[in-house]
Design a protein around this nucleic acid. Structure first.
Lengths: 341, 341
DNA sequence: ATTAGCACTCAATAGAAGAGAGTGCTAACA
DNA sequence: TGTTAGCACTCTCTTCTATTGAGTGCTAAT
C-alpha cells in the first residue's frame, strides 16, 4: 500500500506526537506542531482516510486519533529512519566495556544494562548456549581426601567446574593421568558432539579407574546439561513502570510475571538468527502475555556464537531509537569480541 | 505496658482480621469473628482505650480501627506465637534441597526462592563474604599460548578462577612450580589475612618469574576484592504487587527501585549476626524507602560463615508465619550444611 | 461494669450539569 | 476538484450534590 506524501507526513506527525505524549492527537495539533501550510479541516479529511485504511483509530468519537498497530507497522516498514547512537554515547559505551570484563557473559550483561539505561525500555539478552563452542581443556584436581575438582574450559575461555567424589586412595598423579586421557579424547570436539558417543567409549577404555571416570563423566554431562540452556538476562524491567499505559497494577502484574519467567522469551524469537533488527508490534507477538508490548531485537554473532539482544517497550515505542541503538551496539560488541578473543 | 486479657484478645482479633482483609475492623466484626460473649458497645469502649494507648488508630471518624505500628510491635513482642513449618512443608523443603546443589550459593538461593514461595512475601538472602573462609588450594593452569588460568579453592569448596597473561615462553612445569610455591605460602590462611603482607613478601621470594607472579597476585587480589562483597539475593519481589496497599504505581516504583538496589539492604541490618528472628516494622526501618514495609529476618551460621535471610512484606504482615518459617528454615539449612560439609 | 439505643460523622457511590476537545458535515471559495 | 471556514454534535472528564451505609461516641438504663 502506497501513501502519498501528505498522508505520510500526517501519519508521522501523529505517531511522533502520540509516542511522546501517550494522548490522542487532534487535527489542530498536527497542523501546529509541524507548521503545515494546510488547514485543520484538510488534515481531518486525510485523517479520516487514514482511519478508513486502518492506520489510525479513534478511542471515541470526539477524541483525536491514535496510530493503530498497522499504522506503526507501516511507519516502521516504509518510513522510519533509525537513530543510531551518537558519538558521545558510542564513546561512553566503549569506555564502559574496555577490558573491564573477564568473560563473555559479563560483557553481554553489561550491554544489557546499558541498552536499558539509554533507551528507558526493558532490555533482554539471550546468551548462546555454550553447546556450540569447542571443548578445549579439562583437568582433574585433587582437593581433599575423597574429593576432586573437574575443571573444563571451552575455546572461548568459559570455565566451568564441578566437584566429584573419588576414592580416598587415589593419588594425585593418577588423577592427573586420567585427566590427560580424557583431554586427549575430547580435545577440539564441539561440546555438543561430546555428548553422543565419546563418553561411552571412554568408559570402556579406562576400566581400571572406573569409579573416578564414571564420576568425571557424570560431572561433564551435568555441566553440559546446565550450559545447554541458553541464558536469558533482562535489565531495566522497572522501566515499564514509567509508561502511562501500565499504571494499572493488573496489567503490570501480567507483564512483570512474564518477564520473570525469562525462559518464555526465547520461544518468541525466530528460529534462525540473522543480524538485522526485527520488530514485533503488540499483537504480532505470539504470547498472549505481551501483546500490549512491542519487541525490537537483533541477533548478534561472534565467531560461531549466536545470540539475541533486544528491547521491550509499550506499543507506543520509539522504534527509531530502539532499532538504531541496537544496530550500533551490535556493531560495537562484535568489534570488541573480534579484537579480544 | 501490660494489657489485660480482654484487651489482648481484642487487639489480636483486630490484627488478625486486618492482616487478612486490609480493611479497618469495626466493633461488630470483632464480636462476630471471635464469637465473644461481650457486646459490640463494650468492645467499642475497649477499642477506644486501645486507641488512646496508641495501639490502634482510626483512618477517619466513622471507620473501624486498624492496628498502629506500635500495636503490631506489641503483638509481636508480647503475644505472638510463631507458626513454624508443618511436617509436609519441612518434608518438601528437605526433598527440594537434597543433594541437588553443588555449592553453598546454590543452596542459599534455593532457600530464598522457597521462602518467597511459601510465604508470598519477598525474600532476601545475604551470602557471607568469602573473606572469612580459609584459603585452601591454588593452581596455575596453562590454557593456551600466553594465557593461564588461576584457580582458587576455599575450604568450604567455593571455587573461583580468573585468567591471567603469562609470557608465551613459560613452560607448564614452571607454572606448576610457581603454583606450588604460592600454595605453600598461602595454605591454611584466612583469605582476609592473605591480603595484608604475604603478597608483598612473595613478590620478593620469586624474583625470577616476576611477571607471572605479579599477574597471579593481581588476580588473587581481584578475586578477593570481588568476593569481599556480601552478595544479596532477592526473590519474589513481585509478590508485593499482590498487596492492596501497593496498588498505587508510585509507591510500587519506590519500593521496587529500592529492591533493585540490592546492596541497600545490608545497611539496614544490625552489625552482629545472632540467630534469633528479628523484626523491623515500618518506620522502625532506617531507610526512608521501605518505611511502608516490614522486615522479618534472622541470621544463620554455618561453621564460621554468617549470613542473613529474611522476608519483606507490608506492615500488615503475617508476622507469625514469617518468623516461624524463618526459624524452621534456618534450622534445616544449618543441619544440611553440617551434614554436607 | 455492661449494654441498648440513637444521633452523628465521614467516605464511598451515583447521578446531574457543565466544560472542553475534537470531529464530521455542509457550503463557500479558488 | 481540492481546500477551507463554520457550526452542530458527540463524548469524555471534571465538578458538584445527594444519598447511602458503616461505624463510632455518648447517654441512660440495667
Amino acid at each position: 500500500m502506497i501513501l502519498d506524501e501528505r498522508k505520510k507526513l500526517i501519519l508521522e506527525s501523529i505517531i511522533r506526537d502520540y509516542v511522546e505524549t501517550a494522548e490522542p492527537v487532534g487535527s489542530r495539533a498536527v497542523v501546529k506542531k509541524h507548521g503545515l501550510k494546510i488547514s485543520a479541516a484538510t488534515v481531518r479529511n486525510e485523517m479520516s482516510d487514514l482511519e478508513e485504511m486502518g492506520y489510525l483509530e479513534q478511542p471515541h468519537t470526539s477524541a483525536g486519533r491514535i496510530p493503530s498497530q498497522k499504522g506503526f507497522r507501516y511507519y516502521v516498514d516504509c518510513m522510519m529512519e533509525k537513530e543510531t547512537l551518537d558519538e558521545k554515547e558510542t564513546e561512553f559505551l566503549l569506555h564502559l566495556l574496555d577490558d573491564s570484563f573477564q568473560e563473555l557473559n559479563e560483557l553481554i550483561q553489561k550491554i544489557g544494562h546499558y541498552l536499558a539505561r539509554i533507551t528507558n525500555y526493558a532490555s533482554f539478552v539471550i546468551v548462546p548456549s555454550i553447546n556450540l563452542s569447542k571443548f578445549k581443556y579439562l583437568q582433574l584436581i585433587p582437593i581433599e581426601e575423597g574429593k576432586a575438582l573437574l575443571l573444563l574450559v571451552t575455546d572461548l575461555g568459559v570455565v566451568m567446574h564441578r566437584q566429584i567424589e573419588v576414592p580416598g586412595s587415589i593419588k594425585a598423579a593418577e588423577l592427573d593421568l586420567i585427566g590427560r586421557v580424557l583431554n586427549q579424547i575430547l580435545a577440539g570436539k564441539k561440546l555438543a558432539e561430546v555428548q553422543r558417543g565419546d563418553l561411552q567409549a571412554l568408559r570402556e577404555e579406562l576400566k581400571q579407574r572406573r569409579r573416578v571416570i564414571d564420576r568425571a563423566l557424570e560431572a561433564i554431562e551435568s555441566l553440559l546439561a546446565n550450559s545447554n540452556e541458553e541464558r536469558v538476562m533482562i535489565s531495566g524491567a522497572l522501566n515499564i513502570l514509567n509508561e502511562p499505559e501500565f499504571k494499572d497494577v493488573d496489567k503490570l502484574r501480567r507483564i512483570l510475571a512474564f518477564l520473570e519467567e525469562e525462559s518464555m522469551l526465547k520461544n518468541l524469537l525466530p528460529d534462525n538468527i540473522g543480524n538485522k533488527v526485527d520488530i514485533r508490534i503488540g499483537k504480532e507477538n505470539q504470547s498472549q502475555a505481551i501483546q500490549e508490548l512491542s519487541l525490537v531485537f537483533s541477533g548478534y554473532q561472534t565467531q560461531g556464537e549466536k545470540g539475541w539482544m533486544g528491547l521491550m517497550g509499550p506499543i507506543r515505542m520509539e522504534y527509531w531509537k530502539a532499532a538504531g541503538s541496537l544496530d550500533s551496539v551490535r556493531e560495537i560488541i562484535e568489534e570488541i569480541i573480534k579484537k579480544r578473543f
